Structure formats: structure tokens, C-alpha cells
Simulated scan of single mutants.
Amino acid sequence: MSNVEAHPDQVVCRAGGLPGPQCDEQGRAPVEVITARDVPLGGPRAMTVRRTLPQRQRSLIGPWCFVDHYGPDDVASSGGMDVAPHPHTGLQTVSWLFDGAIEHIDSGGHTGLVLPGEVNLMTAGQGICHSEVSTEGTSTLHGVQLWLALPEHTRHQEAREFEHFAPEVTSFDGGELLVFLGQLWGTSSPVSTHSPLLGAEIRLDPGASIDLPVDETFEHGVLVDSGDVAVENVALPVDAIGYTGVGLTEMRISNRADTAARIVLLGGEPFPEQIVMWWNFVGRTHEEIQQFREEWQAEDDRFGAVDGYVGKGGPGQNADGLGRLPAPGLPDVVIKARRNPPPHVQGGPEDV
């Protein structure tokens, strides 16, 4: 998915100045609540996504640098998804659906359908472009779109990679889970990543609670899709992320509702590199971002071309008549590196 904001935020993250961490009174770990903001995907009939990463409070959780959550949307009203060919550098895109279907085409020659419970992972390396369009048979669209920052040793690779995997459902007392990246609770995914990390969907029965074993070297974030969810006994709003930082060996996740709940658990070792992130590009300097933009506008070979895109406006164009998304203008200031806060819950005395 593209970040199609006409004026992407320039975000400089600093520690301190946050509300105190939330915690219960039973000796559980503190939780930092990261709320979402609404972002339209362009046009008067565009679908709206809820974005929790990146923002001023926190830019990354492990290598996860972008989290969009959308739906359930009635496609007849929202128009569905129609993202014309657009570029990426220095990242992997992770598509995970709960409902609906999306057609993916990229300049690496890969095509595929994103379907519920099946992960699609695309590796940009030094440059790729792709399109995403909800299928004609999709009446409801619901899912998450995620990005992973690539480390220095792989972000320049020339290969444009694409992997698909449908994890098996793992049941436990009180619910079930699907591990689409990394490993959790004895279940693992074969999909290739370039940093130690985790991505999983967890479904909880009404009133269920689990004490989930987790990797203490990972920082974790719990994105709430549905239900009355609490992490470490701290209530989380729907669409928010509950962040716990590193050091936790067991995470308590509860569903206090009388209906089923669903969350997406993201984790990973703290990303050691500072990144410069603007529009659809992840780099390391302002000058790199400027170069990526110029090359995309010039239709440079760095990104290749998408063959076969059919948008809502017909073959080769979206509903606005565009065959590819133009890059927004760069700001009149130097784009700063994202200095992520330390990998622990922010807002306590140590951050003042």
C-alpha cells in the first residue's frame, strides 16, 4: 500500500513529554498506548485507514515502521482499494487480510491475490513498484498493511522478491493464532525476513485470557482489531497499539467482551539503525530520499514498471485517471532521521 498523503508528516521523535505509562495494580508490566489517526487514501470516495506507526510518539517497533489498519469497509460505499503503481525503497511490505481480496502486481514480475489468512510479503531492496486493487467480488475489505525497514546489509539488494504463505491455525485454550512471520509458542513461518521479528494474528474467545510466552529480547506491540482487549490488564481501545518494550517473557492478553476478539501481535529486536522515512521511501539521508523521488518522477529503471494494472478507471488507470502515483513535493527543510525512543514504555520518570 502506498502512503498517498499529499503532504506527508515530517516526524522527529523525542523521548519525554508523554502521559505516564498505564499499568494495573497487580504487578503486571506497564503498557504504552499508541492511538491511531485517520488517513484517507486519496479521492472523495477513498477508503480511510487508521495509522498507528509512524508518529511522534514512536516510529518503530522492532523493524516494523508502518502500520495501517482498515475496515471492515463496505466497498460499495468506500470504493475499495485502488492504489495505482507506486514506488518503494529499503523496506518489505506485509499484506494481511481479515476479509476481502486484493490483486497485487509488482515490477519484479510477480502477481498474486492477497486473501484472508494468507500473508504476502514483497521485498523492495533498492527499488520496486507495485499496484494494489480490491477485486470485483470483494464486498467488504478489512485488514492491515505493514512495512518492515530493511537493515543496511540488505536494503541495497537488486532482487525484487515476493513470498506468499498461508499459515495453519494453531488452537489453544481460549482461542487460536496464525503466525505469518517469525515464530511464537512453538509455531513458525518459513517466510524470509532480514531482522529477528514476529507477526501473528490472535483470536480470543469471549471472556478468554492467555499468558503468552514471548521473546524477552523483542519489543512488542498489540494492535486491537476487535473486542474489549486488555494487555497486562491495561484496557486498549480498538485500533490502538499497546506497546510493552523489551524484557517481557510472558504477556497477558485478555478479551473482556462477550463476543470474540482479534488482535495482531507485532514484535522484533530493537532496530539499531536510524532511518529517514518519507512518502514510500525508507533511506538513511535526506539526499537519498531526494534522489529516490527524482528517479521515480523520471521513471528510472531503479523501480521498473508494473505490467497489467487495471484500476477503477479501466486498464492502466485509477479512478482519477492516473497510471502511476506522482510523488509529492519535498518539504523546504532537511528531512530528519527518525530517532526512536528507547525500547521501553515511555512517559515514566526515566524519560523526563
Rank of each mutant, 00 (worst) to 15 (best):
Y70Q: 01
S2A: 15
V4D: 03
P116C: 06
F271V: 01
P237F: 05
L236T: 07
A36V: 00
A29G: 08
L91Q: 15
F218R: 02
P44I: 01
T48N: 12
P19V: 03
D38A: 11
A257M: 05
V222C: 12
M81A: 04
V306A: 06
D228E: 14
G100F: 06
W279L: 02
D239R: 15
V345K: 06
R51F: 07
D68G: 10
W296H: 07
S107Y: 05
W278G: 00
W96T: 00
S171W: 10
V144G: 14
P213D: 02
G199H: 05
G207D: 02
G329K: 10
C23V: 07
E288R: 06
H88D: 03
Q346S: 12
G314D: 11
M277G: 00
L121I: 14
P196N: 10
G80K: 03
G347S: 08
F162V: 03
D215G: 01
L121H: 00
Y309Q: 02
M1Y: 06
D24S: 14
E163W: 12
R252I: 02
R56N: 05
G308M: 03
E250W: 11
Q346G: 09
Q183K: 11
T187V: 15
F172L: 04
E250V: 15
L248Q: 14
T135L: 12
M47C: 01
P342W: 06
A305K: 13
P30C: 07
E163P: 02
G308D: 01
P237D: 15
C13I: 00
I335W: 07
T285A: 03
V310A: 15
Q274A: 08
I241L: 13
H110V: 04
T285H: 12
S209Y: 00
